[in-house]
Write a protein that binds this DNA or RNA. Structure first.
Lengths: 137, 137
DNA sequence: TCAAATACCAACAGAAAAGGTCGGGATTAT
DNA sequence: ATAATCCCGACCTTTTCTGTTGGTATTTGA
C-alpha cells in the first residue's frame, strides 16, 4: 500500500500554493520547476484539483493557479480525494451495492474501521498547518 | 486506494482457518471452494502467510493448513503485512534512506501520521475478534 | 507397494493501473 | 500580434495485479 506519486506531487503543489498566497496566480511551470516535478504530469494533477474545486485557474499570460479557498479550509483528505477519488478501500461496502455475503462478512468490518481511521487522520490535517510547518522547520 | 484481492482473500482465508480450529489441518481446496476463491491464486497467498509465520502447513494426504498461533495472537496488521509487505506508505521516510528534501518536507509528516493511523487500526483488531463476529452475526 | 491427496514451486499471460509524454487548441495580458 | 499560459485528448512504457499451467515432492492409507 503505497501513496501514488500523483498524490505526493499534488500535495506538494498544494503546499506550494498555500505558501505563495499573494494575489497573483502561480503558473504551472513555476511550481513544477521549484518542486522538481514533471510539468505535463503535474498539469493533469492540477486539472483534478480544479475539478474538485480546490484550486482556481486563470488562463492567458500572467495566469496560473491559486487556492480556491483559504488553506485553513482545505484538509489533506480533500486533496487526496480530489486526486484519487473516494478514499473507500473496498467496493463491497453497503453504499456501493454490497456483495453477496454482506451481513455475515467479517472482513467488511475491518475495512470499514480502516476507512474511518484513514478519513479521520487525513481529515484532521489542514493545508494551513502543513504550510506553516514547511516554513518554520 | 483500494484493498487488493490478495489481501481480501488472505484475510477471509485466515478467518476461515480461525473458525476451523480442530486439530486437523484444512486443505487448500476446501478453503477455496467454501470461500469461492481461485485455488491456485489462494495457494500463492497462503505461501506468503506461511513465509510470514502465520500459518503452518502439512504436506501429503490429509495435510493442509492451520494457524501457527492462536487467533487471539494474530492481528489484521500481521496478515496484511505478511501479504503485502511493509505497511509504510512512502519510500522517503527516514528508515529507508530518506529523500533529498527530508527535514524541510511537510508532506512527510502527513504520511507518517497516516502510517500511524493505519498501523493503529489494523494492529488493534485480532483475528479472534473477527472469527467470533463471523459466527454470531 | 501403489494410488490418491495434498503442499510446493517456477514460469507464463492477460488486464489494469501508474506514471508520464506529445501536440495542438483556446484564452488573455501586454 | 505575440508570448505566456491553461486546457485537453491521445498515446506510450513500465509495473503491478490477478490469475493459470504444469510439473515436483511428500504423505497417507489400502
Amino acid at each position: 500500500m503505497r501513496i501514488s506519486s500523483r498524490c505526493e506531487y499534488g500535495l506538494r503543489a498544494m503546499i506550494y500554493l498555500a505558501r505563495s498566497e499573494r494575489d497573483e496566480p502561480v503558473p504551472l511551470t513555476q511550481i513544477a520547476r521549484r518542486e522538481d516535478m514533471p510539468t505535463a504530469f503535474l498539469e493533469r494533477i492540477l486539472a483534478r484539483l480544479r475539478e474538485g474545486g480546490l484550486v482556481a485557474s486563470t488562463r492567458g499570460a500572467s495566469g496560473g493557479y491559486r487556492l480556491s479557498r483559504p488553506a485553513g479550509a482545505i484538509s489533506v483528505g480533500d486533496i487526496v480525494t480530489a486526486i484519487e477519488g473516494p478514499l473507500s478501500l473496498v467496493g463491497c461496502l453497503p453504499d456501493e451495492g454490497g456483495c453477496a455475503r454482506a451481513g455475515s462478512c467479517a472482513s467488511q468490518r475491518v475495512w470499514r474501521r480502516l476507512d474511518d481511521a484513514i478519513s479521520g487522520a487525513l481529515g484532521d490535517i489542514s493545508l494551513e498547518e502543513l504550510s506553516v510547518e514547511a516554513i518554520t522547520t
